[in-house]
Design a protein around this nucleic acid. Structure first.
Lengths: 119, 119
DNA sequence: AGGTTGCACAACCAAGTAGTTGTGGATCTT
DNA sequence: AAGATCCACAACTACTTGGTTGTGCAACCT
């Protein structure tokens, strides 16, 4: 059923695979066909097609139709959603981090007793 | 086999779940125990524990041990890895498309892009 | 001491994921 | 027209994920 997964989840899980990230990187240099994309990866064309479908579902790429080839192009729009989320939270955490920064990171190995940190 | 998954994949896939993102958001307000975290979600405590394990594996949180409770705290360090990747690629794509710059900046609500990225 | 709370481990299950092979439709080449 | 190329769909396998129940240890409370 996969109850209409939210786009943020789609984007993040699309990005959660090295192959797909590599595809995106490759695509950043210009559009490419499925076979071109498939080449460097030791896997079948069909497998790559599946990855492309995932990326398409996450709206990270879109595809045009020219004759028998279906070149892929990047679609930045939805990456912004993810970037936005991270940025927002990095902000918040940076706040806290600010305060605990030096120590927390340093102490994380050694642990601490100071408990009552909570803002 | 799951050959020692790279951290980027771990982070992204940890973020690819609404429940886990909600946990992180909650955690942004201060540390919390497993039960506290479990409460708002209509699922068992064990399920939440699993989610926490995922977050822990991605190094997005870390846990301390105080008596019988195991409070969770955020660990920003690894989020930066993800933020870095996105930022880097957004950059490239922005070059190509160039247009949604304003749109994005608005989205980030005053957050600056500073070069520091990753580590 | 006996009961309750906080948490995690194990076993299980349904559904999803990442890959495969097999195939077949379009389109291009000859 | 015949054959090759580009791609996607279908069916299958193996593994992972997200959840469950069942259980049990530790630490707290009377």
């Amino acid at each position: 059923m996969t109850v209409v997964e939210d786009e943020l989840s789609l984007v993040f899980s699309a990005l959660a695979d090295p192959t797909r990230r590599a595809i995106l990187e490759r695509l950043a240099q210009g559009e490419a066909t499925v076979n071109e994309l498939a080449e460097p990866f030791a896997m079948t064309q069909q497998a790559v097609s599946k990855h492309l479908k995932v990326l398409e579902r996450a709206r990270l790429i879109s595809r045009t139709r020219t004759a028998q080839s279906r070149p892929c192009v990047l679609d930045t729009e939805h990456l912004d959603v993810a970037a936005g989320w991270i940025a927002r939270h990095r902000q918040i955490w940076a706040d806290r981090h600010d305060r605990l920064d030096a120590h927390l990171t340093a102490l994380r190995a050694g642990q601490t007793q100071d408990g009552e940190t909570t803002r």
